[in-house]
Design a protein around this nucleic acid. Sequence first.
DNA 1: TTATGTTGTCATCGT
DNA 2: CGACGATGACAACAT
Length: 603
Amino acid sequence: MQIAKKYFSEGLIQLTILLSLIGVRVDIDSYLSGYYTPLIEISLGPSSAYTQTPFHNLRETLDGYSVHPKCPELDYFFASRRLLDEVRTLGSRRFPTQLNAWLVHQVSATDKAECGPSTSNDTDAEPGVESPAVEAGDDSERPPHNGQDGCQTTAELGRRPCSTGACGFLKEEDDVKVKAEEEPAPLTQLAHSSTLEQEDLDSLVTDTDIPSAISQDVSLHDAMVTRAFGVASERVESRPAAQQQRSLFRLESTGSSHSDPSPDMAVGLAALPFASVCNLTGNVSSHSALSGCLDEAVFDQINQLGLEGLDTQLMSSLEGINPQVLEDLDSDSGLSLESSSGGPVSPGSSEMSSSSSSFCEDECGATGYSSEVDSVPSKGIMDYNTTWSPIDLSECVWHDHSYSSPALFHQPSVALPHKGIKEEPLSDDDGQTLEDRDLSRDELRARAMCIPFSVMQIVNMPVEEFLEVLEGHGFSTDQVTLLRDIRRRGKNKLAAQNCRKRKLDAITGLQEEVERLQAQRGRLLKEKQLTAKTMGAVGQQIKQLTRDVLARLRDSSGRPLNPERFTLQCGANGRVVVQPVRRPAVSTSTGNKTDKRKKDKKP
DNA sequence: TTATGTTGTCATCGT
DNA sequence: CGACGATGACAACAT
């Protein structure tokens, strides 16, 4: 628990510090609750580690600190990875929408001036980043105590009732409105100034050693102390990437207005260009800069692909990591078939804990005896009755079956966790009838044949010693046969138990996989539908734009171009060229596309 | 009493 | 070749 809290807090603080460097406000709760959920669930579905540790849900609970200890490490790793990826994408102009989000978060120049030095006072906790909103006259909703607010934001991580991406978007909108009131520049200008902002951010990013900053270990306690002493230092430098990360998420979750946010991050991405296309449609009829709109439409498509590409990239990076990380992190979760000692079949874990580590391979299985027994020197028959005690091994798999309770024989006074009457210790004082009633058939046979070994001993002793026993004690042929049968049956019984356990585990695993695949199929179908819808809208938009452009163009004789005979083609360099249609017969949009592709390939 | 689940055992195969 | 594990099949027993 403490470890989880520590890692969790450290990751958050690092992100916060990164963000504070560029003077942006931090909204950690929306970041956490929104970002991981669609990312992980879309990408991987309820894979093993995630299924077992739905930490993104746990965070939203009151006892969010009860996160599985492994999860914060995953978070830390993933967050760092994403930070790096997003910092790398900063220099690219492929994602202007992402940069727009940056602008939304960006603090005004005056705020920057204040946040620069003063950031050191408010840096590590939230106040420094919250200050823009407070200064913007949002005091009615946010208490003026910055420190308290910041701490509250950090502590609220698991408490916020509104934790979806949509909620984060609403908050984002508030910020936008505030900025719109504060500054005369409209949002569109903000968006169009992305280049400028990008340069600004680039300078920040290039001047900052993000990996090293990320690698710095800042605990929650450290952060609080640092804030108290007003120390900004290098830790502050690790902010921008986190801000990117959160902004990206917000955009993604913003685009999806569905009530079910989990499966549709890609859906949200797809919705972005669709919305832009719709806006474009409304403007087409009246605008004059048609070529600009065309470029914008094209860029929207490219952006869609680019964002999806980014999404895919993140997904692939995560998926590439998961197996090792998850396996390592899950190594103690007892995925081994033999390790589920908590089951009713194998309740002997307490006894097992005192055994050597060689039993870890098979705590209660049929193979567990060998290594332990090998370490015991052969001491002859008396050793088997006294010191040699492999029973701890296998008694846990001796079941509550009507005629089997071999664990009771020649056992030290180990309290067997078996249920029922068979757990009564066998002693010479016990009545013979009761004793016989509790004996297994092989025990009865062994007793009848005067064999001085318990079934457990016979089954669990090493084969070398078993052969020595057979040869060195003058047993009759019947006794030898019985000894071999007892050993064979005992081992086979353990093997059967293991086999059944494996079978059940396999069935369970297959059921889980079926559920996971069904969920994945549903998500993919949704995504497919939305993609088809978006593509159809884009195609219609392109057609409309083409008609509009052609209608405004004139041929050499001053007549408008016939849309049936001419078409627009966008080259790789972004130039739009009017080309005559070879075949007057109108084909489908896909046919046009293929024709265009062929034309492009020919030169 | 019947149906179903659990467990032990045997036979068989592969290592 | 023998020991051993895995597993299907069956029977006895429990619920």
